[in-house]
Design a protein around this nucleic acid. Structure first.
Length: 757
DNA sequence: TGCCTTGCTATTTTT
DNA sequence: TAGCAAGGCA
């Protein structure tokens, strides 16, 4: 055999096996930080370099656009140019859309079909509910959307929904509503995200010749983040992979954190069964984290059952131990982390290499506030996205109306934006006609405008609007699309509407509109741009300036940082109560995987925090340290005391000696101590800004768990509260007390948080 | 048509 | 507590 090509030199033996096993199915179990992206990209490079297939004969599927973009870039650096020829590299949804457009008629669609996003989907469902006279208070469209998505994720058409579940929504109308919704989508020439997969699946099943064509085309198939596939994606993949069986899936069962949106870890566990003779390659050599971090993460995840099991190791240094710090409340947590970061900064650390990973986005605010006062530059990742802003959605609706005349949702959105006197009454009439004649709204409008059904004023306005759209539409092939867009926005009065607007956001909105027009330029035409927009809901955030990243644990998957702060490790928040309530043990294990993901993002420093008190929905509640803290190996973790937090000094070996499992979390030393030991009050650390009255010198009430029986306090009783000071009980409702505080006034507080005086 | 009040809810989020 | 959505009212 000839000398191995150079790009293989950089790989370890397992990685190399994963890259070089080209024939037949391969499952790569790639632990965190073991170089899975390198394997995927090198494998593509290897297929290309060895002449096994050309770029357009490789199907490479990812979950996110970001991952797709990264893969493309990395293949490019590996093979020089030519990666742009990889026309089948993309997300499941993007590839499905592409296939579907090629065979739209077979799927009962026109090739210019619209892809609805969640917002459109919900608006459409609201209409369906209304038409069916279902109270959308009791049966919210959002809930129906979730249910339908769930069915679609499982690959179920409305006819396939199991009888029991079909009865589940609005007194037994679940599946029927699903069917009505699909009917509406067909009329609108539209699909939602779930349909992209489902319709492609149906296309393949009903047209074996089409499927065979793709079997011939795709010589090699690669799938990233395989543990995140849902059933529909799995069926899709299995169908396509049946052709040549050259399928390589890369994933890590320990990083499956999207079960709540339909991902089935089972898919990874049953790979061997579905693809007989599959080669399994384990990547266990970690190149990212130092020894202690890796040990802590491994020990934590070992508490999960039903894993394929991997043992990560590193040849690197032991490094610093992850730390666990207890703080008084979320405010102190933010302050402590802020100080840590400032110190790292002073020591010359790169802010880009620091991240704060939270469980839920509400935790972010406290950090933002703190960082603003500190003047610490930060960036929140995962905020509202560019294409979700109202003005962008409006502008896109205009463009959709131009390009896709049957797009009723878009039309409805903008008929009266800006206000032009086309209100509910007019719209109602269009709807009625449309429903009767089965025509899109714009067609209905065109017909009704010729009659006298509509009053003269709105009739004239509507006629003018329709004429505008005609004119714009006639320019599609004449004018460059970004110029056309600008023209539409100006002539429709939309831009003017924001110019007139005096609210402080107006300027930013106009700026966004300009940005939108700019963003259109690189696309070949309007249709191409709209396709991009519906599938790629993102803007490339300009990285650059040195900033600390604040994001959710989910958002951090796939990233790495020198230093990772992990605040909020408290029972109820992390693991999240809802996860436990709704999914029991499976929910807990998914939360634990999330903790594992968090820890393994850290290259050199991982810092865990838990607060004793946290405000949840406006009420202060005392909280327990997370059971995940008990899951950490004492030998690899350092318990750090926040300044003044002396009561945590008792954190010692015993704290970690007992490995708990589900449901027994409340017997751990940490839990017991928290219950029994009356905590000494301590002044807030770092005595700065003592403006607000700090905890008065009192004894905090022992923590009464969730099972607290009726109230210990009768109205009139005098109590002492840690935040609010002394007060008189006005009433009790279970564990909640209404107290008239001497200073703070009437508040609802948790009983466990006050003490009799 | 627009403003104000009321009520409700409150993970994770990509496509 | 706060933020949003929907309904009522002028």
């Amino acid at each position: 055999m000839a000398r191995a090509p150079r790009y293989l030199d950089a790989l370890n033996p397992e990685q190399r096996a994963a890259v070089e096993t080209l024939d037949g199915p391969v499952l790569v179990l790639a632990g965190a930080g073991t170089g899975k992206t390198r394997v995927l990209t090198t494998r593509i490079a290897h297929i290309l370099a060895s002449g096994r297939a050309r770029a357009f004969e490789i199907l490479a599927v990812t979950f996110t656009n970001k991952a797709a973009r990264e893969m493309r870039e990395r293949v490019e650096t590996l093979v020089g140019q030519g990666a742009e020829a990889m026309q089948w590299l993309g997300t499941f949804h993007a590839i499905s859309a592409k296939i579907l457009r090629r065979h739209a008629e077979l799927a009962g669609l026109k090739p210019n079909f619209t892809i609805l996003d969640t917002d459109d989907q919900i608006r459409l469902l609201k209409q369906v509910l209304k038409a069916e006279n279902i109270d959308d208070k009791r049966w919210p469209a959002r809930a129906l959307a979730m249910r339908i998505d769930g069915w679609k994720n499982r690959g179920l058409s409305y006819a396939q929904v199991p009888a029991g579940e079909a009865q589940s929504f609005a007194d037994g109308k679940g599946a029927a509503l699903y069917a009505l919704y699909q009917e509406r989508l067909k009329i609108l020439n539209a699909v939602d995200f779930g349909d992209l997969l489902l319709e492609t699946l149906r296309l393949f099943r009903e047209n074996p010749d089409v499927l065979a064509d793709y079997h011939r085309r795709f010589k090699y198939i690669l799938v990233d983040e395989y543990q995140d596939t849902n059933t529909a994606q799995y069926l899709w993949l299995r169908l396509i992979a049946q052709g040549r069986h050259n399928v390589c899936c890369v994933g890590d069962d320990d990083q499956s954190v999207y079960g709540w949106r339909g991902a089935e870890v089972e898919n990874i566990l049953r790979f061997e069964k579905d693809f007989p003779g599959a080669r399994i390659v384990r990547l266990e050599r970690n190149y990212r984290s130092t020894g202690h971090i890796l040990a802590a993460a491994s020990h934590l995840i070992a508490h999960n059952e039903g894993r394929l099991g991997k043992t990560l190791f590193t040849d690197g240094a032991e490094g610093d131990r992850p730390t666990v710090t207890g703080v008084w409340d979320s405010e102190e947590e933010a302050r402590a982390i802020g100080e840590d970061i400032e110190q790292l900064q002073r020591r010359g650390h790169d802010l880009e290499e620091i991240a704060i990973l939270v469980r839920a986005s509400f935790q972010m605010r406290e950090f933002e506030e703190r960082f603003i006062t500190l003047g610490l530059p930060y960036r929140v990742i995962g905020g509202p996205r560019f294409y979700e802003r109202a003005e962008i959605r409006d502008a896109l609706a205009y463009l959709r109306c131009v390009a896709q005349p049957a797009d009723d949702l878009a039309f409805e959105r903008i008929v009266n934006t800006p206000k032009r006197g086309l209100g509910d009454a007019t719209l109602q009439m269009l709807h009625e006609y449309g429903r009767r004649e089965n025509t899109p709204l714009m067609t209905s409008a065109r017909i009704l405008v010729e009659s006298e059904e509509i009053k003269a004023r709105p009739r004239a306005t509507l006629r003018a609007l329709l004429a505008d759209f005609e004119r714009w539409r006639s320019l599609i092939d004449v004018k460059p699309h970004h110029e056309l867009a600008e023209m539409v926005l100006d002539e429709s009065g939309y831009t003017e509407m924001w110019r007139q607007d005096k609210t402080p956001e107006a300027a930013g909105r106009l700026e966004n509109l300009k940005e939108l027009v700019r963003a259109m330029e690189p696309f070949p035409d309007l249709a191409g741009f709209l396709e991009h927009v519906s599938l790629v809901m993102e803007t490339d955030e300009a990285a650059g300036a040195q900033k600390v990243s604040i994001m959710t644990l989910h958002g951090a998957k796939g990233l790495e940082f020198e230093t990772v702060f992990l605040p909020g490790w408290e029972e109820g928040l992390f693991p999240h109560q809802r996860s436990l309530d709704e999914n029991g043990r499976a929910g807990l294990e998914e939360e634990r995987r999330l903790a594992y993901v968090g820890l393994t993002r850290a290259k050199r420093r991982a810092k865990i925090y838990f607060a004793t008190n946290r405000r949840i929905h406006g009420l202060w509640q005392s909280t327990m340290p997370s059971r995940f803290i008990d899951n950490l190996p004492p030998a690899h973790v350092e318990v750090v005391e926040a300044a003044g937090a002396s009561q945590y000094g008792s954190y010692g070996v015993s704290r970690f000696a007992n490995l708990d499992s589900y449901n027994s979390g409340y017997d751990t030393p940490g839990w017991k101590r928290a219950q029994s030991a009356p905590r000494e009050n301590y002044a807030k650390s770092a005595g700065r800004d003592s403006g607000r009255a700090r905890q008065p010198k009192t004894i905090e009430g022992e923590v009464v768990g969730r099972s607290s029986p009726g109230s210990r306090f009768a109205p009139g009783a005098r109590v002492m509260h840690l935040k609010f000071g002394p007060g008189t009980v006005a009433g009790a409702d279970g564990a909640k007390l209404t107290v008239d505080f001497d200073k703070a006034g009437r508040k609802m507080v948790l009983e466990s948080f006050v003490e009799a005086t």
